[in-house]
Design a protein around this nucleic acid. Sequence first.
RNA 1: GACCCCGUAGCUCAGGCGGUAGAGCAUUUGACUUUUAAUCAAAGGGUCGCGCGUUCGAGUCGCGCCGGGGUCACCA
Length: 502
Amino acid sequence: MAEQLNEQDLRRFEELELLEKAGIEVYPYSFNKTHSTKFILKNFNDEKSEELFNVGVAGRISAIRRMGKASFFHIADETGKIQIYMKKDDLPDFYENTKLLDIGDIIGVEGFTFRTKTGEITIHARKVSLLAKCLRTLPVVKEEIDEQGNRIVYDAFADKELRYRRRYVDLIVNPDVKNTFIKRSKIISYIRKFFDEKGWLEVDTPILQTIYGGATARPFITHLNALDITLYLRIAVELYLKRLIVGGFEGVYEIGRNFRNEGMDRTHNPEFTMLELYVAYKDYNWMMDLTEELISKTALEVNGSYEVEFDGKLISLKPPFRRAKMFDLFKQYTGYELKGKSRDELFEIAKKLNVDVDDNASSMKILDEIFGAKVEEHLLQPTFVIDYPLEMSPLAKKHRSEEGLVERFELFVNGNELANAFSELNDPRDQQQRLEEQARIRAAGDEEAMVVDEDFLYSLEVGMPPTAGLGIGIDRLVMLLTGESSIRDVILFPMMRPEKNK
RNA sequence: GACCCCGUAGCUCAGGCGGUAGAGCAUUUGACUUUUAAUCAAAGGGUCGCGCGUUCGAGUCGCGCCGGGGUCACCA
């Protein structure tokens, strides 16, 4: 991308020098900002305008309308925009310099608040200070409010590549982007509050791990020079949080970054934020109730409503959520009873359903394919899919009454997986067998199968109480609650291929 | 990884039938002391993503590469 200075950028560097020559301190050290623009707009009272007679506001110039010996600016701070009125008579020494101000410059304005003829609350400047010059031309976005009160945006900054690579510009120019990330922050802090009130402990466990586990995925590999060993960036926090349950904590959670060295698309970024929660003495039924409470309350907290619009589809997060056993869903949407079927029978059924499967696919793989092709699309409204086949879930406890199944649920919303939870497997003998089975699959060439973690097995032998565990993909939850359909729109700095210098 | 679409001025986009590049905003100059997509007048600004080829001539056609978006696959 162009790092060169264009005509307009050159002019800005020139203006900086002209301002400096005019005796202006172009990079001062601070500014006495007394009010936010939002506060002023909310609290200005025409009857008592003297209350906001001495204000200091600061922000970035977003619009300029010069009219000879008077000018109107808009400046934007974190909370919003406010109009500034500058008049030559009131700024005798500075007014000439206002010609050297550009859209994007950061200024501080001291003055009094009034309402213009056309009714807009405005700061009448008594003193204007340059706080930082914007030396790079920003996209110019113009806005109009129509009679219905709708915001019409002209020439919005729309180039996705530049918006992601220069998120700071995106944030300056596209106010909705800022709102998305404010909402993201609110979602995460609400979840913390919700868990903290339950008395559970937020913990930090290693990101650099000698053995990675807790999920099936390929890791990022790195090296620790001090010990000359290979380390992996974590793909999940599961096994460490369970060790803490063994250690005697009864409720622990972690909200943190996981790293998976796999494909990137609309719902996958190589690093993503995961929430995991483990609570002792509980099972997955209890966890289902909790998940429902958490998701619905979070929606209400940040959106003021259980309803979410996604791609024009209306989704209701009002509890209770639908609960359906996995094999009942298969029966409902394919017409076939798949429970207890052999691998070859499943293969035949998949063919009849026109689901593409590899000739040598395992029965798990076939079930997964059929689920993805025939069932997921029906799970628009929140649905707990319950009781998965054992082979798909090496860390989940065997079902108390159903042979071949585990006590596991996944929450689907809008056809996407949002949460995954089990009654955690705490029998070390069973866990050992399952991990050894994973190791066999791995040896047979599946790079994503799990690695045996001997210390984790040792911890189970020390004894883990019955425990319920939950994982929620925070990025996907944020997507759901903001209506964004790309994970890149809910991650501030999404992974991008580096630009090549030409 | 496969396929489809896109890449033209700082931004948003037009041109695409091959003849040497256009609009709006932004910028510069001038006018304007309550404007608000301010207005009016004039001017400047482009290796048309990069490279190779076809052609008298390529932004336009072909091939390759780079970057982005989307669909699928892989994956949770």
